[in-house]
Amino acid sequence: MATPFSSQLVNLLAAFLLLLAFAMLSQRRVLTLIKMFAWQGAALAASTLIVAYSTDQKHLYFSAALTLVLKVALIPWALHRLIDRLNVRWDVETLINIPITMLIGIGLAIFAFALATPIAQMAGTLTRSTLGIALASVLLAFLMMIVRRKAVPQVIGFLAMENGLFFAATSATYGMPLVVELGVALDVLVGTFIFGIFFFHIREQFDSLDIRHMEKLKED
């Protein structure tokens, strides 16, 4: 059984996406994290483009372009500005033990693959085998949000999660209708800015972006 070349390329990009998800999980530096997020966006855009070309789905071209503009250029740029303004550029986070996080990550990946296999068999698309990877990226991004202590990496985790969902949509059903995608993209953009504003407030309040301080808000 020879899989067509385009689908091989998508598989490769999917693997790259997963690799980036793991790399983000283990990354200590905020700046590198943003760079990786941009790379993830680029991989996403490329894979969407390939799917669009090989299945001749016009609207996917738009989503590819949208991803490129939004996730490779706009949001990373905004995040860069944000950390410059907040002056958290050199934040090196101490995570909970990285190898343990990685092991949990591997467990999640196996779980996601197991979950996706029956669904993938139902989907008739060319790229169905990447569904597991998409699911795994979502879960890994979620894990990243849980184990991070600083606010900026958490937001990146949130955005990465959206990347995974987008990829899942492309691979399972050749993408959502354009209107939905536009809406989601707008939501993400607005979300990022709202987060940015929140950061400033959090920092004003606590002099730090360490979200452990938020625990103080609880009323006893």
Partner: peptide, 10 residues
Amino acid sequence: HGVVRSLLPL
């Protein structure tokens, strides 16, 4: 079984 299959090499 997919999960078991990937567990054995681990």
